[in-house]
């Protein structure tokens, strides 16, 4: 798994590559460093699939941003990831763009 973080204007952009499952979820969790940003874009274009282990991380991140009055947006969601988000109802919670 590879996680790249860069700043574009006032937005923090985090790009993830590789599958997110039980094995890689801790790495994914550790890689999501927001600092004190209130605007974060999570790019999942290179994530082929994600299991419920990844959902936990996404939920935590989402709550963190909500807690500081910020916003977490998610882009580049692939169909297999999208299916998991739809089944679990996460599509309705997360800001998918």
């Amino acid at each position: 798994m590879e996680i790249k973080t860069k700043t574009e204007g006032d937005e923090l952009v985090i790009s993830v590559s590789g599958r997110i499952d039980t094995v890689t979820a801790p790495e994914f969790d550790a890689g999501l460093k927001f600092g004190d940003s209130t605007r974060v874009l999570l790019d999942l274009e290179n994530v082929p699939y994600m299991s419920s282990a990844g959902l936990r991380v996404l939920l935590t991140a989402h709550k963190t941003m909500l807690g500081r009055g910020g916003e977490l947006r998610i882009s580049g969601v692939q169909p297999p990831v999208r299916e998991v988000l739809d089944i679990t109802g996460f599509s309705d919670i997360l800001n998918l763009i």
Binding site: S51, S52, I87, T88, D92
Partner: peptide, 18 residues
């Protein structure tokens, strides 16, 4: 329950649902 708000969500059981 997959209709709860983010604050009320618990992750348990979602894997089996998938």
């Amino acid at each position: 329950d997959t209709t709860l708000k983010a604050e009320d969500r618990d992750i348990g059981g979602l894997g089996i649902l998938i």
